[in-house]
Amino acid sequence: MMSLDLVFDYIVSPPFFHGAVLTLLITVTSLFFGVLAGLVIALMQETRSRPLQLFTLIYIWLFRGTPVLFQIIFIYNVLPSYGIRLSAFLSAVIALALNEGAYMAEILRSGLNAVKKGQRTAGLALGLTTSQVMRFIVLPQAARIVLPPMGNQMIGMLKTSALVSVIAVEELLLVANQTASASFRYLEALTAAGVYYLVLTTIFMALQAMLERSLDPKKRRRREKRPLLDRLLLATESADVR
């Protein structure tokens, strides 16, 4: 029998709470630098420089072609033998961010490419500068296109972050696993961790839905309110597309 009391105790206990905070911290930091890396890579691909394009190609090939778990272990264990000593947390964030960058680059690039060339031409013809065209015409349209796949990546990152438990970062899954093996209450410990994960993903999904709404130019005229369940269903639908 599962003891709900114990689940509750685990949820409010400091180790679980700290584990959840660390999971969130790893996720948010990795995402931030991942999006940054993706943006740099995507812009490099837009340039006509051959060396830069070759660099991005190799980068994407390496990070999409090997498991994230491999990348985490590699950065944590191999770099020190070349004198680069990083904390487990830092190794985790670097690995996750670099990995994320490869996927974000593809998403961002497809968003930029989805804005047709004629839109830029029309902006230029009005006397806007290239950077104004980028800022007021291309980016707002690209943002709307990349938001759903980016949201999926973000939720994915929350779950992927559990992998860093292999390098002994005290995130949520490691805490749950350690607690369970000490007390043999696997069901309760893992349920407590599962609850945290679900709460976090739900928050992410809600944030995504809010962002998508705020980027919808017609939002002000669409007064109808969607029930929460509908919106979550919509979010899961778009997640399946990937």
Binding site: G118, Q119, A122, G123, I137, P140, Q141, R144, P217
Partner: peptide, 9 residues
């Protein structure tokens, strides 16, 4: 332009 090219957003 032939295809109008209004800014869609």
């Amino acid at each position: 332009f032939q295809n109008f090219e209004l800014f869609q957003h």
